[in-house]
Amino acid sequence: MGVKVAALLEKIKFDVIYSSETALEKEITTSDVTRPGLEMTGYLAYYTPERIQLFGMKEWSYAQNVIGDNRYDLLKNVVTDETPAIIVARDLAIQDEMICVAKKRDTVLLQSSETTSRINGQITAFLDEQLAVRSTVHGVLMDIFGIGVLIQGASGIGKSETALELVKLGHRLVADDRVDIYKKDNLTVMGHPAELLKHLMELRGVGIINVMTLFGTGAVKGGSQIDLAVYLETYEANNAFDRLGIDDTQIDLAGVHVPQTRIPVKTGRNVAVIIEAAVMNFRAKTMGFDSTKMFMDSLSVEIAHNKEV
């Protein structure tokens, strides 16, 4: 499944030189963008017509120096019926032959004042997100102190209630119950709410509430990177919980390893505040301040000192 050219135009601003209803319905199936350098010399052995064709100063200058019918034939080879769009950067003047080819191939022709590298970056970032394989996980995604936190646990453990308390503490809800995730790169996984559930939260005994309506626009966020996972579980006296913070537990989300903290839940524990502390501790660790390591180092020194005595 691809992204329609019309969706690209809604996201990124271009001057439209030529378009049609059918051209706007063409689908972009890859985030790769081609600058047709070798192709314009006639070398088409590894040409990929399904990519957006981006013309910068080099490609434009070469086409500008090809005279008359040769220029039309050259562009006709580069732009095929499969080509979703042609983009000319830097507000470079568009040759008549390029407009004729765009009409013949029924391919959207666009112009931008931006540089080729900037256009390439904008298009690639947008298409990478849109074309990424998505999956769904059960839980609540929150933005806490700028850290994306996925709260998980068994049904009825209190995930939504904890999230509501975190919203009251000034943090932002991204998604409740269902979190759509995708891999942005090898180190980054992103989470978004399902369109139908955006800004909504289910509370047992109350029903469905709209967090943005009740708490304002500052209480919600459209999407977030998932930096930390928190798993809530029922406190049992015979369960072994990490009391020093030395466990290095990770979970796999869309092929990305995300650190996980397990928090026992029982009456009297303020889970929202505990999660806040866990997030602050996680952020401190990423900055090189590890309280557990400092404690263990101090303990080792104390033990060594007592042995000497």
Rank of each mutant, 00 (worst) to 15 (best):
V3Q: 01
K4H: 08
V5S: 06
E10I: 00
T22H: 08
E25T: 07
T30M: 05
R35L: 11
T41I: 13
A45H: 07
T48C: 00
T48E: 12
S61Q: 12
A63M: 15
Q64I: 00
N65H: 12
I67Q: 12
N70V: 01
R71V: 00
Y72F: 15
N77G: 14
N77F: 12
P84T: 08
I87R: 06
C100T: 08
T107V: 15
Q111D: 00
S112Y: 09
N120Q: 13
G121M: 14
F126Q: 09
D128S: 08
D128H: 11
E129Y: 11
V133Y: 04
S135C: 05
V137E: 13
G148N: 02
V174G: 04
A175E: 05
A175S: 12
V179E: 12
D180G: 00
Y182M: 04
P193W: 04
L197R: 03
V206D: 03
I209Y: 02
G222T: 09
G222E: 14
T234V: 12
E236V: 04
G245V: 09
D248K: 15
D252H: 08
A254N: 06
P264S: 05
G268P: 06
E276P: 03
E276G: 05
N281M: 05
R283D: 14
D290K: 02
K293H: 11
I303W: 11
N306C: 01
K307M: 14
E308F: 08
